[in-house]
Write a protein that binds this DNA or RNA. Structure first.
Ligand SMILES: [Zn+2]
Ligand SMILES: [Zn+2]
Length: 726
DNA sequence: AGCACGCCGACT
DNA sequence: GTCGGCGTGCTC
């Protein structure tokens, strides 16, 4: 009889801990595949991890490995490509691999408990929404708003997002026979028709559908040029080849509209939405259907870039310039950049679409690393871009914050029966509450910031942390009772406008007025129905929402960043104003945009008025090259916070000392953050600039092990590669 | 990041 | 006497 030595095998497991290493565990039972989710003992607790390597020794671990407790098969082993993508991200953003994998997985797969997939739920929809609406009395507007959504199939969970009672109503309507229900995969409806394409669109479609292998495109298309229709027809052809499409979109409450349009065009094509509105279970279910290759279209926000897709055929990043593609805490990745890497890895085409591309992507297109495709005509024949007028406000008397020309234009539009949008990106009544005697201003105790006066709620609130307090009745410094609101917020505009527009219906739409479920939906419905005359809106309304009767837009206080240190301020303002201008005018009603500005002489406005992003982008890119700013070089930013600024600065000085100077590497001095105090800590930062991303990575690879070994008590620090806010 | 261990100040 | 403050150190 042959005595076999006991075969011991080991697994190297990635765990969600801030340590840049893998942990060795002994395999006792069946051998899990690489990529499997496993339950392991870790110190006194049991946590979930992912197997990255199998081997017959414990690598460099000298102790006695503990045994894996269980292989959790609620998740199929992650494909090698997904693990490799996570490895790339871990390396590029200098983040521990276990933490990257954890961030890439739906929350339920980070927990040590096994996820039980619920039975597939039915979806509810109306074949003829008009017929359904006839059954619902007009005295039930909330029910009618829900009904109006039901051309698109909804799960019970999706219904609950529309309105707390929506699921209850739908059950009744279904019993009445006014609605159909089906398993999601079985919905058979007529697809919305392809829209006719103009010559430019057809040419772009031909280019995109003809591409094979890794092929990056920058689709530069002006507002209203029909980018979405081009996406839809391109997607149809990728689906016809039996492949999956990943569509990444910004994080805004616009996902439902886009999802509706996709579902209407591709009824019966399984689609997985992955946005922040979903609960953990929905997210996990949709993610699994993508991983299994069942969902053919994955429509999601930045996190969706990590979704495993066995038959990936194309990636589309819509509004590629949008800052929400860059995560601003923890793993500070750019989903757009990761998407480009992923397209290269999967050897598929990628389309970055925007009316105002990021200068980074513009530079790539100019350098022929991306192929530039242009849509320069409006898709709807005869439609013209809105006219933009600057209203200089320097040394001009304003009436409740409005220029007389703006008031006149608003009156004219309202007289024609049209709607007006006042775009004011500042919630609350006034950004400052000030003492008229001594000049004292109400400030947050935890942040270096003013408290914003919210008169409606009778509170002073900090917009940077959760702090709020009752309105101070008197100045704490001099006792004066005459405290004055200074500056104009949306609430103040809402209060003063009726004086100038008596009898007109005015509606404020901002985060405060739409914080409850269904409120935004209700507000938008009021605007669509035409019962609202003037809308006062913040950033929330800048994107996407199209109102047929809205012709006139007045922009207030948008350009405060123009002379700031932030070198991306112009780029962002161009994108914002382009988007806001897109709200003005439809088809036969031409739009007009009035921008109140204190900087009407700024060269930026010459280019905005020319309505052409290309010369602006060319000039900006040239400036960046002249001044050695990204994308002409590569930046990394160390941030530190501590109870005292001195501690943060000293930590950054120690970090800086770990980086060896070399030619073409700029090591700045640590400086206090522009807003020194935030949420009770004092903050500082250290910028390093390298000639190229390659040099930057080499420098960071070299320095980070030393930096990680530093003892920095009371200080929390993080590294941001390719920061967008400095 | 958790979580335990450990060593000093004021509480029943 | 012990409850709890958070500094320090470790996790296969
Ligand atoms: Zn005072
Ligand atoms: Zn604050």
């Amino acid at each position: 009889m042959i005595k076999r030595e006991k075969v011991t095998a080991f697994a190297l497991v990635a765990l969600d801990v801030p340590l840049k290493k893998l942990f060795a565990y002994a395999l006792t039972g069946p051998i899990p595949a690489v990529g499997s989710r496993v339950l392991v003992p870790f110190g006194p607790r049991r946590i979930s991890g992912v197997v990255l390597e199998l081997r017959d020794d414990a690598a460099d671990f000298k102790g006695t490995p503990k045994a894996i407790l269980a292989v959790l098969d609620d998740l199929p082993p992650l494909p090698a490509e997904t693990l490799q993508l996570c490895q790339f991200v871990a390396h590029y953003y200098h983040y521990p691999i276990g933490a990257v994998i954890a961030a890439a997985l739906p929350k339920v797969f980070r927990s040590p408990t096994v996820f039980r997939e619920p039975a597939p739920s039915l979806v509810y929809f109306a074949e003829d929404v008009a017929e359904l609406l006839q059954q619902i009395p007009s005295r039930a507007p909330a029910q009618r708003r829900v009904a109006a959504h039901l051309a698109v199939p909804h799960t019970p969970a999706a219904l609950r997002r529309l309105h707390d009672s929506a699921w209850r109503w739908v059950k009744v309507w279904h019993e009445q026979g006014w609605l159909q229900s089906a398993l999601e995969a079985k919905v058979l409806a007529k697809a919305s028709d392809n829209l006719a394409l103009n010559a430019e669109q057809s040419q772009v479609l031909t280019e995109l559908t003809g591409a094979r292998g890794f092929a990056p495109f920058l689709l530069y298309g002006i507002t209203g040029s029909g980018k979405t229709e081009v996406y839809l027809q391109t997607i149809a052809q990728v689906l016809a080849r039996g492949l999956q499409v990943l569509v990444l979109i910004p994080e805004i409450n616009l996902t439902p509209q886009l999802e509706g349009r996709f579902r209407a065009r591709f009824p019966g094509v399984p689609m997985a939405a992955l946005h922040s509105g979903l609960n953990d279970t929905e997210r996990a279910v949709n993610w699994l259907s993508a991983l299994r290759g069942e969902a053919k279209i994955v429509l999601g926000t930045r996190l969706a870039v990590f979704t495993p897709l066995p038959q990936l055929g194309m990636i589309i990043v819509d509004e590629e310039h949008d800052p929400s593609f860059k995560q601003q805490e923890g793993l500070r990745y750019s989903a757009r950049d990761v998407a480009v890497y992923r397209a290269r890895q999967a050897k598929v085409p990628i389309v970055l679409g925007s009316a105002t591309p990021s200068i980074e992507s513009w530079a790539n297109a100019k350098a022929k690393r991306y192929r530039m495709l242009t849509l320069s005509e409006r898709a709807v024949p005869g439609a013209v871009l809105p006219k933009i007028t600057l209203l200089p406000v320097k040394n001009v008397g304003l009436v409740d914050g409005l220029h007389v020309m703006a008031l006149a234009a608003m009156h004219a539009a309202l007289d024609r029966g049209e709607q007006v949008l006042i775009f004011l990106n500042r919630r609350g009544f006034s950004p400052v509450l000030q003492c008229g005697e001594c000049g004292w201003m109400a400030c947050c105790t935890h942040c270096s910031a003013r408290l914003v006066l919210h008169l409606k709620e009778r509170r002073l609130r900090c917009h940077h942390c959760g702090y709020e307090q009752a309105i101070t009745p008197a100045c704490p410094d001099c006792g004066n009772h005459d405290l004055k609101p200074v500056g104009q917020g949306t609430q103040r505009m809402e209060e003063s406008l009726p004086l100038h527009f008596p009898g007109k219906k005015i509606l404020r739409i901002d985060r405060d007025s739409t914080s409850k479920k269904g409120e935004l939906d209700a507000a938008l419905a009021q605007v669509h129905s035409g019962e609202v005359d003037i809308v006062i809106g913040t950033q929330m309304l800048a994107k996407g929402h199209d109102f047929d009767l809205l012709t006139t837009v007045v922009v207030l206080n948008a350009d405060t960043g123009l002379y700031s240190v932030d070198f991306r301020a112009e780029e962002r303002l161009f994108a914002l104003l382009t988007q806001v201008a897109g709200r003005a005018g439809r088809r036969e009603l031409p739009g007009e945009v009035f921008i109140q500005t204190a900087f009407s002489d700024h060269p930026f406005y010459h280019q905005l008025l020319a309505r052409d992003f290309a010369p602006f982008a060319d000039r900006t890119l040239h400036e960046r090259q002249m001044m050695l700013l990204p994308p002409a070089n590569a930046w990394a930013l160390f941030r530190a916070d501590a109870p005292e600024l001195e501690q943060a600065l000293s930590a950054l000085a120690q970090i800086r000392a770990c980086i060896a100077p070399e030619p073409h590497l700029l090591l700045n001095q640590p400086v206090a953050a522009t807003m020194l105090k935030k949420a009770g800590v004092e903050r500082a930062q250290l910028l390093i600039a390298a000639q190229s991303k390659v040099q930057l990575q080499a420098v960071l690879d070299e320095a980070l092990p030393t930096i990680a070994a530093l003892k920095l008590p009371k200080v929390r620090w993080s590294l941001d590669v390719d920061p967008i806010e400095v």
